[in-house]
């Protein structure tokens, strides 16, 4: 088992605390089967192996997942020239996650490079075709979306104060889990951006879903994006009967190059 990054500096009153979903992502990304897939796609013998891969996590929260990837890139991808970048709608999460990733890199003596965590809506500020590895643990719970009217004031410390209010904290945490109808409203918006976000040559995405998100439908939708698009469940956890049964779906595209290589 690879070590989990420390998040002891994070205030979980307003930033999502690592939970079963986060740990499922860690376990899946470092599982022998995913490491094998990622080594083949990004390792020494992969095509364009001398171009540094860019890993983007959307909705980093505490930063535990991105920190884990940054710290363990050698084992996960077979290389350390990896650049990690994050986004979160919650500014407090951006600051917390930056520290988590930086600490994880230092503690593990990893040689990967951390870019930044951007405060933004999903991946809306990212350049198209730039992302090699995409990771998203979305707000997947079927619950009403929070009211965004006060986002700007809730996203910073109240003027002249040194701490956040209770309402503010509740709002910021709601952002991290409430996913609207079927828990899919935010994920659907993200998926619309996905095909043009991923690098055409080697882009791969990891998306966490719960049973109520109707994962089979999500996978079918990806396969309908066009020729070569694949979607498979590559990790799962939880009680089979429970509604919160979680799974990780991997999306990727098989390019003409992949099929002619062997």
């Amino acid at each position: 088992m690879l070590p989990t990054p420390s998040t002891s500096h994070v205030c979980f009153d307003r930033v999502y605390e690592p939970a079963e979903d986060s740990f499922l992502l860690l376990d899946t990304l470092s599982s022998p089967s995913e490491s094998a897939f990622l080594h083949q796609r990004f390792g020494q013998n992969a095509c364009v192996s001398d171009i540094a891969p860019l890993v983007l996590e959307v909705g980093v929260g505490s930063g535990v997942v991105l920190g884990f990837v940054a710290a363990n890139a050698r084992k996960i991808f077979g290389r350390e020239d990896v650049l990690t970048l994050g986004t979160d709608i919650n500014r407090f999460a951006c600051q917390a996650a930056s520290r988590t990733v930086e600490t994880a890199i230092k503690d593990s003596a990893s040689r990967t490079t951390f870019s930044d965590v951007i405060n933004g809506d999903l991946a809306s500020s990212l350049k198209p075709n730039a992302i090699d590895v995409f990771i998203f643990n979305p707000p997947y719970v079927p619950a009403e979306l929070p009211d965004f009217t006060h986002h700007d004031s809730y996203n910073i410390l109240p003027t002249g104060e040194t701490r956040t209010t209770f309402d503010q904290d509740s709002y910021l945490l709601e952002l991290s889990y409430a996913g609207g109808e079927d828990g899919m409203v935010v994920t659907n918006r993200m998926m619309e951006q996905m095909p043009e976000l991923l690098s055409p040559a080697r882009g791969v995405a990891y998306l966490l879903l719960c049973a109520q998100n109707k994962p089979e439908e999500v996978k079918q939708r990806v396969r309908n994006w066009g020729p070569g698009w694949c979607a498979e469940t590559v990790g799962s956890s939880g009680n089979k009967a429970g509604w919160e049964r979680l799974q990780i779906v991997r999306f990727w595209r098989i390019t003409a190059q992949d099929t002619t290589q062997h």
Binding site: C94, I118, N119, G120, F148
Partner: peptide, 18 residues
């Protein structure tokens, strides 16, 4: 204009621009 404060860039848009 996107503001950068304490090293964090803010790319959130007001509702009418999304």
């Amino acid at each position: 204009e996107y503001a950068v404060k304490e090293g964090v860039a803010n790319f959130l848009l007001p509702g009418h621009l999304v």
